[in-house]
Write a protein that binds this DNA or RNA. Structure first.
Lengths: 340, 340
DNA sequence: CGAAAAAGCCAAAGCGCTTTGGAAGACTCT
DNA sequence: AGAGTCTTCCAAAGCGCTTTGGCTTTTTCG
């Protein structure tokens, strides 16, 4: 059942039927009711391909997915997706993942914009002066950055959590507990979130006349194994740290294992605070020693990003509004006073 | 630059240019070269919306994503996606995720098929006589099932791993080591993979005159916490099992923690074998006691599913071919002879 | 050499929707 | 009553591609 048939059936023109259905004002309310009624009764659904060709709107939001034999998609992605999908569902949006070579995402961005494949995109894991952000900004497609990309000469809309504040608070707590040598096991420090977290720690320490030694900072891909390795390296050196902040629960698994392997204890010998993105399948309170965390639901962020994308598509939101969510510091058993 | 302009530029008709570009035979090779040349030089890219409207083909593969406030996307999904995306990239396919209410996916399947939004779909985590499989089968869109759905009265194409054989082998090994009371901590037993795994264990045990007691079988959502709880429940009962097979590495984390909490040891008191889908961020060899596993890369499966979908779209593959991959049993330190 | 077949190209008709530019009729106002 | 203004609807022109049906021109072959 297409528009023409429906129009014929109602003895109206396609124009009128189309307008009635799309809520244009220049149609009699009585007529509109008749049209909508008939449409519903016959289960008429406008053909999206045709609509897209005519309007250029696709009803989809896009994400360029970096891929490659050596590229692993972050498990955080799936949680973000849960939130995004949940919102998208209730608003009839689809999400299209366009896989791209990790080293050439520009081509893909250009393609999806030129082809008008999606109405909006989001960008995740941004870096300082991220080229993707600059690109979509000039391409003129609605977008939201999940995270921040600093050092660009333009404003852009984003949603981020207060990584700096979170790790600042975490470090402050540890210092208050008497720790003097803190360590940070961070994610890839080319990404802004990691930079902010390091910055936050440095600031908190500086405020107490302390500093974060370079040898006490690790930047690695966030796997259990890397958490383990980093921890061993940290704890086996002279002047080992007595407290560790860790950028992910997954790495924290490795931290805990390493501490145990070294015959040390949490929080007796080492205090630990990790960042928790709130996975349903791995909870900090269930660690052998319940983990203190800086907590922020990445899932909620996904839903919010979807919401704002929808708003931008429909013109309800515009401009370069940045949104920074506070992060909870949740204290559990994994922190204690510094060992004597 | 659109087709008409290109045709005008070449002083040819749109027909000829279109045919030249799409490799139809009724065009002079010399002409074809000229056309392709000009197309490349001017960076002509056919408008996919227009092409889609004309042909009904979208160049996308689809996945209906069950969502809901209480629905968590499985972290396995992201690994599968890595493989799928990697293949899709090299073949210019996009993936569209259509979020659907977990309790009404049919509407969404019908929509994406009726609207011809995608050229093919895949279905994951199937159950016996899965209605989604029956649905897409009757809807007539190319599809592949990742997993199996038994008890339907029709054939369909699928890719699955030999879950039954894997757990059979695992159980056999444990029995050979002298274990008599085995337990299974399984995933949701409404899904085929879980059913197959249980079946495999039962068969192996039966072959030795043993049986898997119902109280030694747990079926839970695969989280760390559920692994922990299940293990405590198992080990705190009379006639506790001396060996556990576990359907996921994530649950295995909880198993290990529970065993430790109970003051028991692996493999001294309890042997453990888990299924490993091969996550880059959590490896069985890195558990405090290296984990024996039944191993199968879900990522490779994703790539293979994409490959077969592409083949089906282009008509290279047809029929209801089922493909079952063998699973490796990798023995590490977590298994030992049964305690006296 | 002439008829039949093949090769190479084109005009035009879709695909199903939105949107522009009116036009007819109803209503308002002086 | 006539001009002007709304209201309500329509015909037709896109959007950019594929594909049908047909028309020349060239090649093939008895």
């Amino acid at each position: 059942m297409n528009l023409r048939q429906l129009a014929q059936m109602l003895a109206l023109s396609q124009t009128t039927v189309s307008r009635a259905l799309n809520g244009y004002p220049e149609v009699n309310e009585e007529t509109r009711r008749r049209v909508m009624d008939a449409a519903k009764r016959h289960g008429y659904r406008p053909n999206p391909s045709a609509r897209r060709l005519a309007t250029g709107k696709s009803g989809m939001i896009g994400y360029v997915l970096p891929t490659g034999a050596a590229v692993d998609i972050d498990p955080h992605f799936v949680e973000f997706l849960s939130g995004l999908g949940d919102y998208a569902r209730s608003h009839d949006l689809d999400l299209v993942l366009s896989p791209a070579d990790v080293d050439d995402q520009e081509t893909t961005y250009r393609r999806i914009v030129a082809n008008r494949q999606v109405d909006a995109v989001y960008i995740s894991s941004p870096r300082p002066a991220d080229r993707r952000v600059a690109l979509v900004n000039t391409l003129g497609i609605p977008f939201i950055v999940h995270g921040r990309s600093e050092g660009s000469d333009f404003e852009y809309p984003y949603l981020d959590i207060d990584n700096e504040g979170a790790f600042q608070e975490a470090a402050r707590l540890l210092v208050q507990l008497g720790h003097r040598r803190l360590a940070l096991i961070n994610g890839d420090d080319r990404e802004t979130f990691a930079i902010h977290r390091e910055l936050g720690m440095r600031q908190a320490l500086a405020a107490s006349g302390l500093r974060l030694e370079d040898r006490h900072v690790c930047s690695v891909v966030m796997t259990e194994e890397n958490g383990y390795r980093a921890t061993r390296r940290l704890l086996e050196q002279d002047g080992a740290p007595t407290a560790i902040a860790c950028s992910s629960l997954i790495m924290a698994l490795g931290v805990v294992r390493a501490v145990r392997d070294l015959g040390l204890g949490i929080p007796g010998d080492v205090s630990l605070i990790a960042h928790d993105d709130v996975f349903p399948w791995l909870k900090p309170e269930n660690f052998s020693v319940p983990l203190s965390t800086t907590r922020s639901s990445i899932r909620l962020a996904g839903a919010r990003v979807a919401e704002r994308l929808a708003a931008r598509i429909s013109g309800l939101e515009e401009g370069a509004r940045g949104e920074v969510w506070p992060v909870d510091l949740v204290v559990r058993g994994s922190v204690a006073g510094a060992p004597a």
